[in-house]
Design a protein around this nucleic acid. Structure first.
Lengths: 342, 342
DNA sequence: CTGTTAGCGCATTCAA
DNA sequence: TTGAATGCGCTAACAG
């Protein structure tokens, strides 16, 4: 049985309060009793229980990163790792620990109910989502990344619509007209059915604007195919497999996540397509490995690490009752060599 | 002010216990009182406090992954992501949440003291390390990955020494004699100075055995250079920069982590070396991107995901008081095209 | 089926 | 400087 504050107090002949002071505010007790208490604590291997301490102090010293899918899925995407790195960076500075919170048995509400954290960084949350109710009930401050801002909802993101428009402008300028788009499949949760659609919609809207400038429709256009895929290389590979078999295969594939391009590259090569000579590939994210691909990937850089960092910093501000606001970060189309003229 | 179990009990005209049952064991109360309680809870936005609940139940429902460095450093390495994915996989199955625990202000003992978790998966822990004392004091079950087993210490790892021997056998068989080795720099923590050296030592021992078969010494050999580097592409790139400038530059670079090879590739190309024609590269891990590199990386595959998964499963066994034991996993030298004959 | 009574282990007033 | 008392919010015997 682990010893408690009572045991120490008893052995030291002082009260619990004194022992508590020894660990939390040594300046309030005499040097003598302090050392005696610490000695005894050492002997008995006493260490204050973090949970009891949390209950009494009313804060946990940890924040959560809430992801809409299982960890083993979500962490396949290096873009997510970058976000976590950013969050971790400020946790480190602040002396907080970081919990990765994913749906418990597929149910996100369970996760939120049980989360022993002081605040949350979330992904893809927007106004009107039913999950918001839970945050409020729990009184959990949160900031979302790649979601949608609102008066009550602070978001850290990019202008997906503008970035997409710029991307499509470029694709069209290179002469491409037969286009495949790999949109991210929505994450369907039993308790919240509209996850991760925000980014999709913004980007498609950007595409629409760009195409409109050339008088090309996005929908009902046999030259433009839209696929909904997981953000995994495997799924992208499988889709590409079928896609390339078509007689009317596209001259460019636009991915919504760099991770997908690995699968695209693989399948293209397997079927004898040469990037960018026979087919072009362009994407979003610019994960750290994008420039090492062969050929190096042309992609819209968005600051994953920074998003995580800033989101966490904003969360710190919330916890400190400072005023906060949403932030839109810059993107940049990084031209490498996976995109060529048709 | 958030409402508590008392408020609900009061409003519902029942006792706290009944409310508690409503949330934890509805079968023990009548359908009627259940719905009434839940209605009131809904109105008042009541949600049981996870911390108080944890204190009372004596388990947290979460496990920790303890890493020896800051999250933003450690997560640069996809091999670590793989481990986390594996741990996350079983957390998901078991309905647990996962905390990433890194040194608080550089001090790991603080982290362990404050960790509100039921158990720990750690990295590179071996017998005799001072940090063990803290695990025992806290009564925290733990299993280590890539550490060293012991009667009291269960480890999930590979036979690093054998894997290294095999790697070096191959390198020598390809005719290489001028060799650079990028060992992983030890992580020096103020409270525990001997982290991450276990893998290094085993691998160097394996190299020594292999070299001995050809009568070649590892130490005091001007043809074999050993560098201590971070497990990051940047550090590996910088080391490579200096290395290639030497008149007596190596014919092969052996990295202890795939992530380093990105830096090596980059600098080699920058300086006009052609892999594998002018210089060979070989490594450990086989992270998911290794096969997409150009040229595809020859590397010793070790099962990161599986290590994480099995470590977490063993931890579950510990928590369930089942008997457990250390596990040595298989490795395989994956021959791709970054290694050629000299 | 429901209520009463003790804790869980610690932090923090307020007195002394 | 120290101690006693109270509360944090919930769970779990036990009793009825």
């Amino acid at each position: 049985m682990r010893s408690t504050i009572n045991d120490i107090a008893l052995r030291a002949g002082v009260s619990k309060a004194t022992v508590s002071f020894a660990f939390n505010n040594p300046s309030k007790i005499s040097k003598d009793t302090y050392t005696r208490i610490m000695e005894i604590a050492g002997e008995l291997g006493y260490v204050p229980d973090p949970v009891a301490r949390t209950l009494a102090k009313k804060h946990t010293g940890s924040i959560g990163f809430l992801v809409p899918q299982a960890v083993h899925e979500v962490l396949q995407n290096p873009y997510i790792s970058e976000i976590i790195r950013g969050i971790g960076y400020v946790c480190d500075n602040e002396g907080l620990s970081l919990s990765i919170l994913s749906p418990l048995k597929g149910v996100l509400s369970q996760t939120i109910r049980n989360a022993a954290v002081d605040g949350l960084v979330t992904l893809g949350i927007g106004p009107g989502m039913s999950i918001l109710e839970l945050f409020y009930q729990r009184g959990l401050p949160f900031v979302t990344i790649d979601g949608k801002s609102d008066k009550m909802l602070v978001n850290i993101g990019i202008d997906d619509s503008a970035a997409a428009e710029n991307l499509m402008d470029t694709v069209l300028a290179y002469g491409h007209r037969k286009i495949a788009i790999y949109v991210l499949k929505d994450v369907l949760l039993p308790d919240d059915a509209d996850f991760s659609s925000i980014v999709n919609e913004c980007r498609l809207e950007g595409f629409r604007r760009s195409l409109a400038k050339k008088g090309i429709p996005l929908e009902k256009n046999s030259d433009i195919q839209i696929f909904y895929t997981d953000s995994s290389m495997e799924d992208a590979r499988d889709i590409t497999h079928d896609l390339l078999a078509l007689k009317n295969s596209p001259s460019v594939i636009i991915c919504f996540a760099d991770i997908q391009t690995f699968g695209v590259y693989e399948e293209c090569k397997r079927q004898g397509f040469v990037i960018p000579d026979t087919i072009s590939v362009i994407s979003f994210d610019d994960i750290p490995f994008a420039r090492f691909m062969s050929p190096p990937l042309t992609t819209v850089r968005q600051p994953g690490f920074l998003k995580g960092q800033v989101a966490a910093e904003v969360l710190m501000d919330m916890l400190a009752k400072r005023t906060v606001s949403s932030i839109v970060m810059d993107t940049e189309l990084i031209i490498r060599s996976s995109l060529a003229s048709v």
